[in-house]
């Protein structure tokens, strides 16, 4: 079906990509496609290559083999040297890192959110207006003059998100957006992502949180050892228990039955907390 999509509608086309960190393979022959407006989840255990893939998509590192294109244009180091393409690409693709401490390097929340627009050389008035709007949108206007390192984990995450959303990117890359957050803050982030759905934005989320999968993605890729193990709708993936167990996204579930025998028990407990 997706083969019918015209090239101009393909946000990212990843073709047989390999990448190594100092001889340790992170991606091995991975291919995928993301079309405009799609919400895609990258599932996988720790070390399966999700974060690496996001970095490649964000043009922060480049594949050893294979190629990636962004709306039909090849995404290469040489290409990004070009100033016009660099700013156009950065404007359209935003990435939220897993660790907000890495992303928040400015002395105040305002400066943090203003960093991106200033690098893209927006006029001062526009920067101020956009930053104000974004802080309101994320409900962090009251933190404006605070130092980012003095915020709580949930607040930091919202500032990190705001610092990317301020550019109003078409494509949002999220690395474990809800990791290490309390359930309240987690729900806020997920709610926000859900509310973003209508804006026909492309969202690619790396996660191993199966609870929120259906809320944040229309389609998912399951990654294993740096390659795609399976691709499908969240529902289909969540029902493939054998696959989830093999890729260590759920653990083989044991519990004691009435006879007192411990058995591997092939079913998924998703809504424990409900």
């Amino acid at each position: 079906m997706r083969e019918c999509v015209p090239t101009s509608e393909v946000a990212f086309a990843v073709n047989d990509v390999s990448y190594r960190y100092l001889e340790v393979p992170a991606l091995a022959g991975l291919s995928m496609r993301v079309t405009r407006g799609e919400r895609v989840a990258l599932l996988g255990a720790n070390g399966s290559g999700k974060s690496t893939l996001l970095r490649l998509l964000a043009g922060l590192c480049f594949p050893e083999h294979g190629d990636i294109s962004f709306y039909g244009e090849p995404l290469t180091e040489q290409r990004l040297e070009n100033e016009e393409f660099f700013y156009r690409f950065r404007r359209r693709v935003g990435m939220v890192f897993q660790n907000p401490d890495i992303q928040l390097f400015n002395p105040s929340v305002f400066d943090e959110v203003a960093f991106g627009p200033l690098q893209l050389q927006w006029p001062g008035d526009q920067v101020r207006r956009r930053v104000g709007e974004t802080l309101d949108l994320m409900g962090i206007a009251h933190l404006r003059d605070r130092a980012p390192h003095r915020l709580s984990g949930g607040e930091k995450k919202r500032v990190a998100l705001a610092s990317v959303l301020v550019l109003d990117p078409e494509v949002l890359l999220l690395d474990e957006p809800s990791a290490a957050l309390d359930p309240g803050s987690q729900a806020q982030i997920v709610e926000f992502l859900v509310s973003w759905r209508d804006r026909s934005k492309t969202v690619i989320t790396a996660t191993h949180d199966l609870d929120t999968l259906e809320d944040i993605a229309d389609r998912c890729y399951v990654l294993e050892n740096g390659a795609v193990a399976c691709e499908g709708t969240p529902l289909a993936v969540l029902h493939d228990v054998a696959l989830l167990e093999r890729t260590r996204l759920v653990r083989p579930h044991h519990h004691v039955h009435r006879e007192g025998v411990t058995q591997p028990h092939p079913h998924l407990h998703r809504h424990h907390s409900d």
Partner: peptide, 10 residues
């Protein structure tokens, strides 16, 4: 990593 994060934002 900070440098990467800065790059990602232009």
């Amino acid at each position: 990593e900070v440098h990467t994060a800065m790059q990602a934002r232009g």
